[in-house]
Write a protein that binds this DNA or RNA. Structure first.
Lengths: 326, 326
DNA sequence: TTGTACGCGTTATCAT
DNA sequence: ATGATAACGCGTACAA
């Protein structure tokens, strides 16, 4: 059915090992013959057989990613960006939507060169021989592979810094507080630390969840406060969406009467009701880092084992401005 | 590195061709030896090498699914269910989150036996030699592969029928009306047809979108109606979620004062604020059908080309009840 | 610089 | 019922 290097060899009047070399751009073959072979190959519509290549090479140049069962846009965007980042490499990426266990089996069968897992599931992944990179805080569990994460404390410091410079003294944090989730905890604690450092009065509102509507509801609480903040830091993309919506409905003008800065740095922040000023590691950078790390891990063969906290950046848009004069 | 059938052969004192037969459950090997080989294989942690298998078999037994970038829970659930449905078969599934074009390249490289695409993206897929099955309405474009879809008209007929039997005469439809989206259009039209058939007065509320909040807002409009409905058909899982939330906030009791039936038939309907009575093709059935179709398409080799509209079913829960006596 | 020959892990065909 | 052996398409050490 398919064209093989033998077919090309016959057509080009060379042996098929020469074809192989030419196709792999080996310096061991004369430029003229190389060109000729390449031309013939293209003419015949040659497509290399991955299976055969893999069988002898022991490499697939494919990375498996275990799809987290959590349905959050931010995560989906990250996955999309990771996939995009792989396009610039020789690797491609496949996904598995199964449990960590089943996914692992699938990936083993495919003999992927490496795997990417997310915080939610990498507790379940046995420490295996296959290169692994995890994204997200891991709790305190000791692991033997690299972990990439955002520096949430630093993010909150930057957010508070930005708002403070705009003259805000009453800055509230709206997010999921009472939680076992290490990610959420790091964000609140970062906020608290940044406020304390500046001797500003803290005001944390618990959304009791991570959904849009949780942010929407939290605004009720803020409105009822005797001492109202002039700025809000929303704990996530979804939450901030709810906050903005509710503020609008209540006729609170953004950013004139209330500034809002959101955690998470994804392109979608631009197209919200109000272009959202946000803080976080830009999702494309995050993706690049994850991809670079797994590739390095694979190609160096080193048993790396570190936690890398990426530096977030603040993207200025329309949702935050100077504190109102009172 | 990995265990091969030769390793097993040595361990079990048989030739490796016997191992191959045993592993493939061939009747040509004695039950005793077969059991022994299977045991040894498991003990040694044998994982078959897909590449080698593929090299000789010319089949990968892998299906590629192009994951559209759309972020909707219902679709995610469908994908999960499709993946689960494949577990009962010899096929496995891999996902690609790229554009249809790039995904196609990846899948070609892997030499997948078949592909599944969704309505949103299968316009982009060139009519290729590789077996293909699409899910969802395709507009009017002529295609040369099977299309699986839900029978939306029939779904609405059943919903209206169910509510009418409960004594409801004022049944409103809440969904995205003014749209190019063939899927949405089919649902509204189904509703209209079912109502007309019974000489009931139609009442369609446009949500102008498909999000939770769109349903939430639509209730405002309903409340202001002079002639209020006693039942609502929500156009989708998300929309119905918003509807229920808003009704609760307004103190409207469900189902005593208002019945709600939602389109989409996914397990998550059970765990909503109110266990939701819903209508639609159960997502597991949908998944089964898609999987069965692509497999048949592959194994028969036929150039099937049809549109199959699956029959929806109504799942009774707590959100709908008899019409209130007035 | 080019060609020969072997091996990768598996299935399948033919002997035994 | 089991074993030996030839493919499958490719890369690569080694030979020419």
């Amino acid at each position: 059915m398919g064209i093989t290097i033998k077919d090309i060899a016959k057509e080009a009047n060379v042996s098929y090992s020469t074809v192989s070399k030419a196709l792999n751009n080996s310096p061991l073959v004369k430029e003229v013959t190389k060109q000729k072979i390449l031309r013939v190959a293209k003419e015949m519509g040659y497509e290399p057989n991955l299976a055969a290549k893999q069988l002898v090479r022991k490499k697939t140049e494919v990375i498996g990613l275990i799809w987290p069962t959590i349905e959050r846009i931010v995560l989906a965007t990250l996955v999309t960006n990771i996939s995009k980042a792989f396009e610039a490499t020789k690797y491609s990426m496949i996904l598995s939507v199964d449990s960590a266990e089943t996914s692992l089996d699938t990936f083993k069968k495919f003999q992927v060169d490496g795997m990417i897992v997310f915080a939610e599931s990498h507790q379940m992944v046995p420490e295996d021989q296959i290169p692994l990179v995890a994204y997200g805080v891991s709790g305190k569990r000791k692991v033997s592979y690299p972990i990439i994460d955002a520096n949430h404390e630093q993010a909150m410091e930057q957010a508070v810094q930005y708002l403070a410079e705009l003259g805000h003294h009453h800055i509230a944090y709206v997010g999921h507080l009472d939680t076992e989730d290490a990610l959420q905890r790091e964000k609140v604690e970062g906020y608290q630390k940044a406020m304390k450092k500046r001797n500003l009065k803290q005001q944390s509102i618990d959304t009791n969840g991570l959904d849009w509507y949780d942010g929407y509801l939290a605004v009720e609480e803020i409105i009822r406060l005797t001492h109202q903040p002039t700025a809000i830091i929303g704990g996530s993309y979804d939450i901030s969406g709810g906050i903005v919506r509710s503020l609008h409905e209540k006729g609170v003008s953004i950013p004139d009467a209330m500034s809002v800065v959101s955690y998470d740095n994804i392109p979608q922040m631009e197209t919200m009701e109000i272009p959202m000023t946000c803080i976080g590691v830009p999702v494309d950078i995050l993706a690049e880092e994850i991809v670079a790390t797994i590739i390095h891990h694979i190609e160096s063969g080193e048993e790396d084992e570190f936690i890398k906290k990426l530096t977030p950046s603040l993207t200025e848009r329309k949702s935050a401005g100077p504190a109102p004069q009172s």
